[in-house]
């Protein structure tokens, strides 16, 4: 009798692993072919030009004010949008989590409803609402609240507003999921122990809903960084975000190297945001697998 013979369970386990790999193969292939390879090619383009290595594409970040102004504006918009979605989304999620199942589903459906129309349609809808002769301005005017129309669109304000509208579900859903998991008994315990509703909210509910809030903030922030259609249509040329810089470099100047370098820098920024957030809560909670 030899000891080195693998036990039946070992060989079974190995064949199971082979099967798993086989099942994963198509997905891995798609991700590899459609994501990793293009990304690598993208990064390569930013440092390889006319048969030699170059850092000129990255030097522009230091020398060209348009570059860092654009990044600055993009981050500012992302920050404002994130803050606004927290302030708007938290009460919605709170109410939805507290309602009986049937009603909370209705609230969530209303939050998700805009998802079913394209970003393009929603951008034009905002344009119709907010333009100089739009519904909002004419209503305010006929109510006698303003004399001349407000500048509500074709600027940063319009862009931020529409972005908030589009991204609100990304804040509400993780918040709702986290709040739903907070045992009702903890709130009851808090109040039975003498905590006023405000005290219990601040000391018990809010801290326990924080993971959902951070998850939502990361999602909204990162998604805003890459927004393109909304600022393009509602920014009126005055709002210049990173994605537009990429598109201009390709469509107008045919500068693939410059466009690639911007994308790479933006990608690094996104990684940094995730890294920062993962210091606060585990990454699995941001993407909602735990």
């Amino acid at each position: 009798m030899t000891i080195s013979i693998a036990s039946p369970s070992d060989s079974h386990e190995r064949s199971e692993q082979r099967l798993m790999l086989l099942l994963l193969a198509p997905a891995l292939l798609v991700v590899g072919a459609l994501l990793i390879v293009p990304l690598g090619w993208l990064a390569w383009q930013s440092i390889w030009q006319d048969g030699g290595f170059t850092i000129v594409n990255y030097q522009r970040f230091l020398t060209d004010s348009v570059y860092w102004m654009t990044f600055l504006q993009t981050f500012r918009i992302a920050f404002v949008v994130t803050l606004a979605t927290v302030l708007l989304g938290y009460p919605v999620a709170y109410v939805a989590a507290g309602l009986p199942q049937r009603w909370s589903m209705i609230v969530l459906a209303l939050v998700l409803l805009p998802f079913w129309t394209s970003v393009l349609v929603r951008a034009y809808a905002w344009l119709i609402l907010l333009q100089r002769t739009g519904i909002v301005n004419s209503a305010l005017k006929s109510a006698g609240l303003i004399d001349s129309p407000l500048l509500l669109v074709n600027n940063e304000f319009g862009t931020v507003l529409a972005t908030i509208h589009i991204l609100l579900p990304f804040m509400v859903l993780p918040l709702y999921a986290t709040m739903k998991k907070i045992p009702q008994e903890l709130v009851m315990a808090g109040s039975s122990l003498g905590g006023s509703p405000l005290h219990v909210f601040l000391r018990v509910f809010l801290p326990l809903s924080l993971p959902g809030m951070i998850a939502g903030m990361v999602l909204v922030f990162v998604l805003t960084l890459g927004f393109y259609i909304t600022p393009e249509l509602l920014g009126g040329g005055r709002t210049y975000m990173v994605s537009m810089l990429v598109s201009r470099n390709i469509q107008v100047y045919n500068e693939w190297g410059a466009a690639s370098s911007i994308s790479v820098v933006l990608m690094i920024c996104v990684f940094l945001v995730f890294k920062l957030a993962s210091l606060l809560i585990p990454f699995e909670r941001i993407i909602g697998t735990r």
């Binding site: 009851m188 315990a189 039975s192 000391r203 018990v204």
Partner: peptide
Amino acid sequence: GIVFQNYALFPH
């Protein structure tokens, strides 16, 4: 003072 079935201790 209430002692709850699942203790309801504050996990944080």
